[in-house]
Design a protein around this nucleic acid. Structure first.
Lengths: 219, 219
DNA sequence: TCCACTAACATACAGTCTGTATGGAACAGG
DNA sequence: CCTGTTCCATACAGACTGTATGTTAGTGGA
């Protein structure tokens, strides 16, 4: 009953096509229905191949997801870098000013349903913490940490520990983007979240009168 | 519709036992292995019942998870409320001071592996966004939002939109607690995260020289 | 050109897991 | 005594994942 599939010359280009089709289909479906609710059969059907191709190119379903998430994170990082280098050229300010505006543009860039669902929602649960963190570390945190280090070196941001600062700021922006995405009034939510973010960042600047040893960790 | 007094002195207790056993076993296993990696058979085995009992008490596996997560969130909220009311009595300060110290103690309370895994990691992916948000809204956000509203009314916190502020602060603390939990040096991580948090909160206070309309939303 | 040999799939199958349907025991009420 | 309901156990059907196996196009060597 099954119509035999005719396979023509299988060039390296065709192989790459298969892989890309799988990635594209998986990305779409994972973002729309979530990881658990997306069967491998659904993916290969959308990609017009069979499960054999999937398991040839990827170790398992989670491996496919990892590749999809890496692609999402990669694209987001590239988008941001391009945006920020352009801004730095046209309007050269100090690193701190650049970082603050960068946060705001990240807030806009983050407003991408696929990125949110795959990287922020499904990612931590599907890949465990370590694998997720490794991916984000590679694609996202490095940029933020670099910018923060620059700003600290320039003296406009107080010498706070970059590690936790990076994670916490990233979480802040992530949550803000999710808040904006699910709000009824996107424009208003964007404005409010941007305002809150800007206010929170104020505290990072040099504040001469404040001793950095206020908090010791024991309540 | 009339509910006559039901007295099943012994059996009613037994029924509650079954339910509690399921909740306890599920909580343990979900926190340890994650939702997807925990089979219903594992849960009922740990609870010393059969799958029939599980599906009698809960609609499906996700429903059981929801109950577990609600329990976790409930306990966390109770713990915090108790802690804060005690603090408020012994050391009555203004709402803002109370809130700041409350954040720090939340940072400590959040350092609970079950809470982190179930509520913060698995929750958003297992229950969708809306169900998760509804639960957190009910158990966690209300407290934070109330405290923020008080602090704003007292004038020590600027009149910022409470909705996004609540979510973003909660995300901040959640990420900080995760950072602390996975750090090699917990004590140091706790100290650093607490410091960063304290600094970020500074920006929320009244800052006379800053116009709140700096950020308009369009980059 | 012939012959391995391998990459790139397709297909069939086995194991696992979830949800449901069925059955039964205990108990309350009429 | 009969009946209905609650509470749970068991059996079963469907779905899904990963793997084993088959098949074909390309490739390098002799």
């Amino acid at each position: 009953m099954s119509v035999p599939r005719i396979r023509r010359s299988r060039s390296a280009e065709h192989v790459a096509d298969t892989r890309r089709a799988l990635l594209r289909a998986a990305r779409e479906l994972f973002a729309e229905r979530g990881y658990a609710a997306t069967g491998t059969e659904d993916i290969v059907a959308a990609a017009a191949v069979t499960r054999g191709a999937l398991y040839h190119h990827f170790k398992d379903k989670a491996d496919l997801f990892r590749a999809v998430m890496a692609e999402c994170a990669q694209e987001m990082a590239e988008r941001l870098v391009a945006q920020e280098t352009a801004r730095a050229e046209t309007n050269p300010g100090d690193a701190w000013q650049l970082l603050r505006s960068g946060f705001q543009s990240f807030l806009d860039a983050c407003n991408d349903a696929q990125f949110q669902r795959i990287v922020l929602i499904e990612g931590p649960a599907v890949l465990g913490h370590s694998a997720w963190d490794a991916l984000v570390e590679e694609h996202g945190y490095v940029l933020l940490a670099e910018a923060l280090t620059d700003a600290i070196r320039e003296g406009n941001v107080d010498d706070l520990p970059v590690g936790p600062l990076t994670r916490m700021l990233a979480a802040l922006i992530s949550e803000a983007s999710l808040y904006i995405a699910r709000a009824d009034d996107h424009v208003r939510a964007r404005q409010e979240a941007g305002l809150v973010l800007e206010r929170l960042l104020i505290g990072l600047g040099r504040v001469p009168g404040v001793s950095p040893a206020l908090v010791t960790g024991q309540s």
